[in-house]
Design a protein around this nucleic acid. Structure first.
Length: 722
DNA sequence: GTGAATCATCTTTTT
DNA sequence: GATGATTCAC
């Protein structure tokens, strides 16, 4: 335990507040983590049993880190620390039967969900093109996050589209139930309902966890809010920590209102504000502060710097992403040369696809890096295939798993045969797997296919007998016996075997071995538990703070982390703020917070950059500097070194003042919403937004093609149509 | 009926 | 540039 003397007065207040609701509004770098761990220690110190404390974090990784910190204080061993989703899995396995949930449920990932959604659209007899799976799922997910059931929604849906969605939603839930599967959102939804509808569950959980702690509370959605509330209803010992300015998950249903209205919900709540910043230099904080002040929906909060002045935030403008990447890599190489540890350097970007160029530049300079969530490990084909075998073994009702592997490796069981199997299964309301057991009753199947399907089922039955063995052993066995390994080792037409795929599977098996080791003494250990855990594991969790590597990650993944030196790339309109968020003010403010989060990760140095041209979807296009650069007061100037003298570029970004007078100030340069305009390349369009930023004014135009584009007035030839 | 090959489509962020 | 749907050759 850190000596209490080293805490500030407000930190101390939060640490020592024992009973009753507590809201900690903690700005970036304000020592929140320290407060949480010390508060847990203080609770245990005052006689609370460690097992009665439950801390909920946002990511598995955060849980792991907190577990590490808390358990390093020996008395605190036994505190329950997990994410909402893991906690829900545990609750559902224990109490799920009350809501008709079989304990060995599968957890469906995006691909499985898409399949179910398609199925649901079919059953609702609607057009799969008009109701694309991704769109439908997005809608359903929103409903679930708000705890709106299919019945509720069917009752309130008043237009055609919503009525259709309501039908699909209800079919979708039926499909999931048939597969004995829950999707990510269901984990929360079912738990919230369990707490609401079964007083016994609520009481038991309240008695078990006398103290509840929720971190990153600004990013909780309504379902999570209800779960947290239900779990502390009887004792009221709920402590939430977070920062409204760092809410970046509204798109996933996070409700910033949860934190803003905590005091309404718990009128006797104590509120502590941590506004001092022990992390960043005043230079960095100044930029963050200026930027975030452009947001209207916020509680005014100052960032009070504590540490001394450092160097200024650098802004680079580059020709294209290659030049940008090289400059970043050079900058990193320089830092390393001066003795900085690679673990203290990070590069952030808005979208995952932007990592490629950076990687190339780093590889070239032999700089070690780790990429947080690159091509996701658990999304690889070979991994999903093997896991699908295990899923089917654990949960024979899992049609998704069945379809994935019944012909993987190829066994000569084709689409048409499977269609017939599916028709039979749905007619008799059974799973595909049990339909195979009744295969003699199915008409229209060739004798060869019958034989093949029977052999497949026999193989799965054999695997089933091994489920008591350690997961790693079973996995190894399945990998060998299923024929997957042969498929991967066999050389393809170009003479390459998929050695890396085999390596990936080996990695999976060794991680299963680790699981067997760690879980062997817990009562729930086994195949089902393993699969349920792994389903919640994302590659974000692969980030290892102790390894001496430069970190590359999205701005979202950067939440909760800090580094001495930070690079943020791609400060361009359409990218940051992202195109799809530029339409309404709320998501624009979220983009601003996203940049804010990125900025405030940096302790000593921060460099942001943009490109004049960026290649998106194979086409290189002229970009517009992000409005956030101007808002943050960042001077955009050419970085001299890497500039290619290009006469075609009839403009320069440097020293904005020098070019104010490049165009006259007439009314021609002021636009209003819905005004008709014409662009020499894109044609006719209507003004959607106009941001009057002087010479940096931005017009967002929806063109006749249906595309909406942000344009920087000074570089575009936009004329009014009268 | 099966499996490979081509074509078309969409591409933000994540538990 | 990956994923799924469709086509095409066996």
């Amino acid at each position: 335990m850190v000596s209490l003397q080293s805490l500030t007065r407000s930190q101390l207040e939060a640490v020592l507040h024992k009973d009753g609701p507590l809201l900690v509004i903690a700005g970036p770098g304000s020592g929140k983590t320290r407060v949480i761990t010390n508060r847990i220690a203080a609770l245990v110190d005052s006689g609370v049993k460690a097992g009665c404390i439950c801390a909920i974090t946002f990511t598995n990784k955060a849980a792991e880190q907190m577990r590490y910190r808390v358990e390093s204080m020996a008395v605190c061993r036994g505190v329950h620390i997990s994410t909402f989703h893991s906690l829900c899995v545990r609750i559902l396995r224990q109490y799920g039967q009350l809501a008709g949930i079989n304990g060995n449920f599968s957890i469906y990932d995006e691909a499985d969900q898409r399949r179910c959604a398609k199925h649901a659209v079919e059953r609702a007899k609607l057009d799969g093109k008009q109701f694309a799976a991704a769109k439908v799922l997005e809608y359903i997910s929103k409903l679930k996050n708000d705890l709106v059931s299919p019945e509720d929604f069917a009752g309130s849906a008043d237009d055609y589209f919503r009525k259709c969605i309501a039908r699909i939603y209800s079919h979708y839930q039926a499909v999931l139930a048939e597969n004995n599967a829950l999707d990510f959102d269901d984990l929360l939804v079912k738990t919230a309902y369990l707490l609401r509808d079964h007083r016994m569950v609520m009481e038991e959980l309240n008695n078990r966890f006398r103290y509840l702690l929720v971190d990153e509370y600004q990013d909780t959605n309504h379902a999570q809010y209800q779960i947290a509330r239900g779990m502390s209803l009887l004792h009221g010992n709920i402590c939430v920590t977070g920062d409204p300015d760092q809410s970046i998950y509204a798109w996933r249903g996070a409700d910033i209102g949860n934190i803003l209205e905590f005091e309404l919900d718990w009128p006797n709540a104590k509120v502590v504000r941590l506004e001092e910043n022990f992390r960043s230099t005043p230079n960095i904080l100044g930029v963050a502060d200026k930027l975030i002040s452009f947001n209207t929906e916020r509680k005014i909060k100052k960032l009070v710097p504590v540490i001394q002045k450092g160097c200024d935030v650098e802004t680079g403008v580059f020709e294209d992403e290659q030049a940008e990447s090289e400059s970043v890599a050079d900058g990193i190489a320089n830092l390393l040369k001066n003795g900085t540890s690679p673990a203290e350097i990070a590069v952030f970007y808005r979208v995952n696809s932007m990592s490629r160029m950076l990687e190339e530049a780093l590889v070239l300079r032999q700089i070690p890096y780790q990429i947080v969530r690159g091509i996701e490990f658990y999304n690889r084909k070979e991994i999903k295939d093997l896991l699908a075998y295990l899923r089917l073994i654990a949960n024979p009702a899992d049609n998704g798993a069945f379809l994935r592997i019944v012909n993987e490796p190829a066994r000569g069981i084709g689409k048409i045969s499977l269609e017939r199997l599916e028709i039979f299964a749905s007619k008799h309301k059974m799973s595909l797997y049990s339909a195979v057991e009744k295969i003699d009753k199915i008409e229209n199947l060739g004798p060869a296919v019958r034989l093949k399907l029977r052999a497949f089922a026999a193989m799965i039955e054999k695997f089933k007998q091994m489920t008591k063995k350690p997961v790693a052993e079973l996995m190894e066995h399945v990998f060998q016996q299923s024929g997957l390994v042969d498929g991967l080792e066999r050389e393809d037409s170009q003479g390459h075997s998929k050695a890396s795929a085999v390596e990936n599977v080996e990695e999976l098996i060794s991680s299963a071995r680790k699981y067997d080791e760690l879980a062997k003494d817990t009562p729930q250990a086994g195949l089902v538990d393993y699969l349920q855990q792994i389903a919640l594991y994302s590659d974000t969790d692969a980030y290892d703070p102790s390894s001496p590597k430069v970190s590359l990650m999205t701005l979202h993944a950067a939440k909760g982390l800090e580094f001495d030196n930070v690079f943020i790339v791609g400060l361009e309109e359409g990218l940051l703020p992202h195109q799809r968020s530029a339409n309404d003010n709320r998501s624009l403010e979220e983009e601003r917070r996203l940049f804010f989060v990125g900025i405030t990760r940096a302790r000593k140095s921060l460099a942001v950059s943009m490109c004049r041209y960026r290649t998106i979807h194979g086409i290189s296009a002229r970009t517009i500097p992000s409005r956030f650069l101007f808002e943050a007061g960042l001077k955009v100037r050419d970085s001299e070194k890497r500039q290619v003298e290009n006469k075609i570029n009839d403009f320069k970004y440097d020293d904005a003042d020098s070019q104010i007078c490049e165009y006259d100030d007439s009314q021609e340069r002021l636009f209003v919403k819905n005004e008709l305009v014409s662009h020499q390349k894109f044609g006719l369009g209507r003004v959607q937004e106009f941001h009057n930023l002087g010479e940096n004014s931005i017009v967002v135009v929806r063109f006749i093609s249906g595309k909406t584009k942000p344009l920087m007035l000074k570089y575009t030839n936009l004329t009014k149509v009268r």
